[in-house]
Simulated assay, not measured.
Amino acid sequence: MLLVTPFLIRKSSSSAVFGFSLYSISSMYFLIAFIIGIIFIAVNPESYKICLVTNIILAGLYVAMLIYNIIVNESTADSIERHEIELRYVKESSAKLKSILEKTSDRKIKKLVEKAYDTVHSSPIKSNNSVRDIELTVMELIDDLNNSVNSGDTENVKALVNQIVNQAEERNRRLKYSN
């Protein structure tokens, strides 16, 4: 069972944590089965039935514990994956805006970009499918903002920042009322 355990572990960013619980269960099963086997060899019972029944019960308990842990690990991995996806909007958008902020020397533009950064950075991390289109729009607007800042188009920067702020606030509003 220890040899099979690595194939039961889901590949994700937390594989080591999931693997630890499964390896612990498999190791305990191995150790207990080994000790019970030694006891049965030492006692040398006339009938093999007691040994067989004991090992079947032990294997059944092992399988039940293993399946339970695999189900819990899958649920946890799904939650972690969903959280990482939800986190991506705030992290990526904030990082892009911060990058724009750092390379901008014009004080007016910097102030505008700071407003967009603050709005996006303070947005709730928790997301849902109803706001996915707004998140994609904000990310596209940030790319457009980067191009406008690079070209020095102040009027377009103002318009884009206002759109980013409005879209980010709309996303936050929808999330607030969807819960």
Rank of each mutant, 00 (worst) to 15 (best):
M1Q: 11
T5C: 05
F7D: 01
L8T: 05
I9D: 00
S14F: 09
S15K: 03
V17Y: 05
F18G: 07
G19L: 00
S21Q: 08
Y23I: 07
Y23F: 11
I25W: 00
I25A: 00
S26A: 14
M28L: 15
M28H: 07
Y29I: 04
F30M: 13
L31P: 00
L31K: 06
A33I: 04
I36N: 06
G37N: 06
F40N: 02
I41T: 14
V43G: 04
N44C: 08
E46K: 08
E46F: 09
Y48E: 15
V53D: 13
I57A: 15
A59G: 09
G60S: 07
L61F: 15
A64H: 10
M65D: 12
I67A: 10
I67P: 00
I67M: 11
I70F: 02
I70Y: 00
N73M: 02
S75C: 06
T76K: 11
T76I: 08
A77P: 05
A77K: 07
D78L: 13
D78Y: 11
S79Q: 11
S79Y: 13
I80K: 09
H83A: 15
I85H: 14
L87E: 11
Y89I: 03
E92G: 06
S94T: 14
S94M: 10
K96F: 14
L101H: 13
K103A: 05
D106Q: 06
D106V: 07
R107Y: 08
K110F: 09
E114Y: 12
E114Q: 13
K115Q: 10
A116K: 01
A116D: 00
D118E: 14
D118F: 12
V120T: 04
H121C: 14
S122Y: 13
S123A: 12
P124S: 00
K126H: 12
K126C: 08
K126F: 12
S127V: 01
V131G: 01
V131S: 03
R132N: 13
D133K: 15
D133Q: 14
E135G: 04
L141H: 06
D144K: 13
L145A: 04
N146K: 10
N147L: 12
V149A: 04
N150C: 08
S151C: 06
G152E: 02
D153R: 06
D153C: 07
T154M: 07
E155D: 11
A159W: 05
N162D: 05
Q163N: 13
Q163E: 06
Q163Y: 11
Q167H: 15
Q167E: 10
A168G: 02
E169I: 09
R171S: 03
N172A: 04
N172D: 09
R173A: 10
L175F: 11
S178T: 08
S178P: 04
S178C: 11
